[in-house]
Amino acid sequence: MRRLAADLVSTGATRTDLTVEEIADIVWTMNSSEYYSMLVTSRGWTSDRFSNWLHDAWCRLLLDPTHAV
């Protein structure tokens, strides 16, 4: 996850108040099978809904909103 986080930081699009380690931690925890299981299996979300939610959450948590992507 640190390599992915470092690659993301290298784009210049991430929030400046987050370190590579913090970004890696966020991605690592939210990419766990438990998140998917809780929302899709237990709560009835579709896989597409989960995918869209995760994308939106990562964008909001990790990216600088003033940076055009």
Rank of each mutant, 00 (worst) to 15 (best):
L39P: 05
D48I: 10
N52H: 09
T16K: 11
L63G: 02
L4V: 14
Y36T: 04
H55N: 12
E21G: 11
N31D: 10
A13V: 07
S42L: 05
E22M: 12
S42H: 02
S47K: 02
V27L: 14
I23G: 03
A5V: 06
I26Q: 03
V9P: 00
D25W: 10
W28R: 12
D17L: 05
M30Q: 13
D56T: 14
V9Q: 05
L63F: 07
V69M: 06
W28C: 10
R43I: 09
R15E: 04
L39H: 07
I26C: 04
V9R: 05
S47W: 01
H67P: 00
S51W: 12
N31K: 03
I23T: 06
M1A: 14
V69Q: 06
D64Q: 07
S51M: 14
D48Q: 08
V69R: 07
W28F: 13
I26V: 12
S32R: 04
L62D: 02
R15A: 05
A5H: 02
L61E: 06
I26K: 02
A5T: 03
R3Y: 11
S10Q: 10
W28P: 00
F50G: 01
A24F: 07
A57Q: 09
D7M: 13
R3V: 15
L63Q: 02
C59T: 12
S37V: 12
R3Q: 14
T11C: 10
H55G: 12
L62G: 00
D64W: 05
V27A: 14
V20D: 06
T16F: 06
D64Y: 07
S51L: 12
S33W: 06
D64T: 06
S33Y: 06
W58G: 04
W28L: 15
T29S: 13
L63V: 03
C59Y: 05
L61G: 01
D17C: 12
T46F: 14
V27S: 09
F50H: 07
L61Q: 06
T19G: 11
L18M: 13
A68E: 02
T66F: 00
D48F: 09
S42Y: 02
S10C: 08
F50P: 00
L63H: 00
D25K: 11
S51Q: 13
N52T: 07
V40L: 10
C59E: 04
S37Y: 12
V27Y: 07
L18N: 08
L61C: 07
A6V: 09
T29M: 10
R60F: 03
H55A: 15
L54P: 00
